[in-house]
Measured scan of single mutants.
Amino acid sequence: NQASVVANQLIPINTALTLVMMRSEVVTPVGIPADDIPRLVSMQVNRAVPLGTTLMPDMVKGYP
């Protein structure tokens, strides 16, 4: 099973992602692959992302 990117904390709308905000976890449904975490750094979320939420491609501005 492939690990996905999961919010490690509440991420407010328009926040630029940092490594501490994300963790990898095997979840269903599958979200953004954990391998993409380095690419996500400094990209902004377009909505508030609660703790434990799987990051989906449509939540991150400019992804992929």
Rank of each mutant, 00 (worst) to 15 (best):
N1F: 14
Q2C: 15
A3D: 15
A3Y: 15
A3F: 10
S4I: 02
V5W: 02
A7S: 14
A7Q: 00
Q9D: 09
Q9P: 01
Q9T: 11
L10G: 09
L10N: 12
I11P: 01
P12Y: 05
P12R: 06
I13Q: 08
I13F: 09
N14P: 00
N14V: 03
T15H: 07
T15I: 05
T15P: 02
A16R: 05
A16I: 12
A16H: 13
L17A: 00
T18Q: 10
T18R: 08
L19V: 10
V20L: 12
M21I: 03
M22Y: 01
R23L: 05
R23Q: 06
E25A: 08
V26G: 04
V26M: 06
V27F: 03
V27G: 03
T28R: 03
T28M: 10
T28N: 13
V30S: 13
V30Q: 13
G31H: 01
G31E: 01
I32M: 03
I32G: 01
P33A: 14
P33Y: 09
P33N: 15
A34P: 05
A34H: 09
A34G: 09
A34F: 07
A34Y: 07
D35S: 12
D35E: 14
D36K: 10
P38C: 08
R39W: 09
R39P: 03
V41D: 03
V41S: 03
S42C: 10
S42Y: 08
M43I: 04
M43H: 15
M43A: 12
Q44F: 12
Q44S: 13
V45K: 00
N46R: 08
N46I: 15
A48T: 13
A48K: 07
V49E: 02
V49M: 05
P50K: 14
P50I: 09
P50N: 11
L51Y: 13
G52L: 04
G52Y: 05
G52H: 11
G52M: 04
T53E: 11
T53A: 14
T54D: 02
L55M: 12
L55H: 01
L55K: 00
M56T: 14
P57S: 14
P57F: 09
D58M: 10
M59D: 12
M59V: 07
V60G: 01
V60T: 00
K61S: 13
K61P: 10
G62K: 11
Y63W: 15
P64N: 15
P64R: 12
P64E: 14
